[in-house]
Design a protein around this nucleic acid. Sequence first.
RNA 1: CGGGGAGUAGUUAAGUUGGCUAUAACGCUUGGUUUGGGACCAAGAGGGCGGAGGUUCGAGUCCUCUCUCCCCGACCA
Length: 494
Amino acid sequence: MSIHKRITKKSEDYSEWYLDVVEAADLAENSSVRGCMIIKPWGYAIWENIQKHLDAMIKATGHINAYFPIFIPKSFFDKEAEHVEGFAKESAVVSYHRLKFNPTSRKLEVDPEAKLEEELLIRPTSETIIYDSYSRWIKSYRDLPLLINQWANVVRWELRTRPFLRTAEFLWQEGHTAHATMEEADQHAIKMLNVYKTLIEEFLAIATIPGKKSESEKFAGAHTTYTLEAMMQDGKALQACTSHHLGDNFAKAFNIQFQDKDGKLKYVWQTSWGLSTRIIGALIMVHSDDNGLVLPPKIAPLQVVIVPIWKNDSEQTLVLNKAEEIYQMLSRTDITTKIDIRDYLTIGEKFFEWEKKGVPIRIEVGPKDVQAGHTVVVRRDTLEKSHVKFEDIRNAIPATLNSIQQNLFEKSRQFLYSNIHEVHSYEELKDVVENRNGFALALWDGEEASEAKVKEETKATIRCIPFDMQSNITGNCVISGKPAKYRAIFAKSY
RNA sequence: CGGGGAGUAGUUAAGUUGGCUAUAACGCUUGGUUUGGGACCAAGAGGGCGGAGGUUCGAGUCCUCUCUCCCCGACCA
């Protein structure tokens, strides 16, 4: 199952390039089920690493994991008006619970006798089914805060899909909390946004802008939506994750009340927050190059691959022994490594394969190297080759992995900030989002009408109102000319 | 749902105004030569052309119906 596809140049067709990288790195493929994706082992291993680190961080902030049903009674959705509206158009619905065999056509058919009294939605998100439980679980202030997380799949019937970025079914983690006060809920939503920021910066090496969503872009049913916006290499924005302060909207809809210390019955204040397999799409788009995927070491399923090179049997023994020695040495640390002993591939094929899969470091061990007492170490991010003496490997490899991790983040950060342009007129705003492929930072009056005008004329939307770019708001909205309330980031997005 | 395109081998495609045993490349199998950046030679395996019906001596090519997929738009993490 070797992979030979050459990759489209990023500069020529970014979309095509992205799909090529996904295929060449053997991450995923389209399934025969429309809009759904098969996550292949290499792609899934990346997701498992993300899961591992994020799960630890979620638990470290006091949450525990639970699991709720995939099916949600339709009536649950009706309870929160904005929520229904937001998800109605993309819901998969189960109406029957049985098939029967038709002897004439020799095919299975839906059994009309088995129609459900109430349809079930396949969860597009779990607020409603979880809060139905919360209304029974929460009675007293002593039950708060309730901090629960779930790892699950969800289904949103998207019309147009792309691997990882938008698929009909995707995997994610969704946290759902209930608190006694509004302030606590709001702080919690921000706290979780920061957890995501740490994960995305330190592990995925992606720089993001934290901020608040505008009214029209916020989650259906939320009081406030916080987001991390990342920039892809074509300058478009990708929402890396969201964290919602739900206010008491769902508490009222699902009647989640508790008796407080003062004896009064009060509604809880809630948050929900999620990070999905979409982040893998961001990972691919942010770091990869025309040779394929580039993985940050902390998230790579394999950090080091050792490629032995030989011509004949005696060389093979010599070289494999040395490779084994290096493997043992690295295995004693927490570095994940393997020796590529396949004898039916030329070394060229092996090099290209591991490069396409994004393995951070390749160590070449050939007869010449063994004789000279060194190895050739190649780092994936820069493709730089260097000679490393056998005795130095133990220290050099962790240092190089570290350097790759830093370098990728630094590149991402510099790219992001060098493509945020502060604009002072509507013309400038249009120019940035349409021609200069970046984020436009503009004064905005906070009005939906202004936002809608930009969307209609340029397809760019407000990605977020960044937290830390709000000082000294003086001047007028670049769209309407009215006094500005915020600085907002406008960009085209995925 | 509106506009456009395509269904031929595992993949990507060629297939003239209907004509003889349906092509090619890549991939796969076997054998050999190779191996410090996608190797080479040879021999093989594999499809009846999305489906149904029709015209014809003869259909991948023509006609009718039908199914599916892809791209652009609307919806979206």
